[in-house]
C-alpha cells in the first residue's frame, strides 16, 4: 500500500481538523472565528482526505449532490433566519425578535449562531465543490453534478 505514513497521518488528523472547525465555528460568537473560517477549515479536512486517498474515495464519502444541497441549505439558513425574524415581527435579521422577552438580548446569540452556521455550511460545501471540479478535471463539468 503506497503512501502508508501519509494515509495513517491523515486518518489521525481528519477528526481533529473537523473538531477544530467546529470550535472556530461556535467560538465565533465570542471571539475571532466564525462561519467563513470554519467552513474553509472544515473543507480542508476533506481536501486532505482527497489528496491522500484519491478524489473517488472522498466523493464516495461526500458526494457532489450532498454538497449542492448543503450549499443551498446554508444560504437558506442564513436568509431563513432573516425571514424568521421578519415573521416574528422584527426587521430582516433583527435577532431580538427571536427571543422577545429576554432581558439580555438572548435573541442576538441565537441569531448569530444560526446565521454563522448557515455561512459555515455554505462556505464548506462551496469550497469542496470548487475543489472537486478543479481536481476532477473532467473534460466538461457534468451538468448532472449541479
Amino acid at each position: 500500500m503506497p503512501h502508508l505514513i501519509l494515509r495513517v497521518t491523515t486518518k489521525m488528523f481528519f477528526a481533529p481538523i473537523l473538531l477544530f472547525a467546529l470550535y472556530v465555528q461556535f467560538h465565533g460568537d465570542y471571539g475571532p472565528g466564525g462561519g467563513f473560517q470554519a467552513g474553509v477549515i472544515f473543507a480542508v479536512a476533506f481536501i486532505l482526505h482527497a489528496l491522500c486517498f484519491g478524489l473517488e474515495e472522498t466523493k464516495k464519502a461526500l458526494p457532489q449532490r450532498a454538497l449542492t444541497i448543503a450549499m443551498a441549505l446554508g444560504v437558506m439558513f442564513y436568509a431563513g433566519t432573516g425571514l424568521a425574524t421578519m415573521l416574528l415581527g422584527g426587521n430582516f435579521l433583527g435577532y431580538d425578535a427571536l427571543a422577545p422577552h429576554s432581558t439580555h438580548h438572548e435573541g442576538q446569540h441565537y441569531g448569530i449562531l444560526l446565521v454563522e452556521f448557515g455561512v459555515g455550511l455554505a462556505v464548506a460545501s462551496t469550497m469542496l465543490t470548487v475543489f472537486y471540479h478543479f481536481a476532477g478535471r473532467e473534460p466538461e463539468i457534468d451538468p448532472e453534478d449541479w
Binding site: 449542492t68 444541497i69 443551498a72 441549505l73 444560504v75 437558506m76 436568509a79 432573516g82 421578519m86
Partner: peptide
C-alpha cells in the same frame, strides 16, 4: 423595502435544489 431583494435571494438557493 427589503422584500424585493430577499425574495429572489432565498429563492435562488432553493432553485438549486
Amino acid at each position: 423595502p427589503v422584500l424585493p431583494v430577499v425574495i429572489p435571494f432565498v429563492a435562488g438557493a432553493l432553485a438549486l435544489l
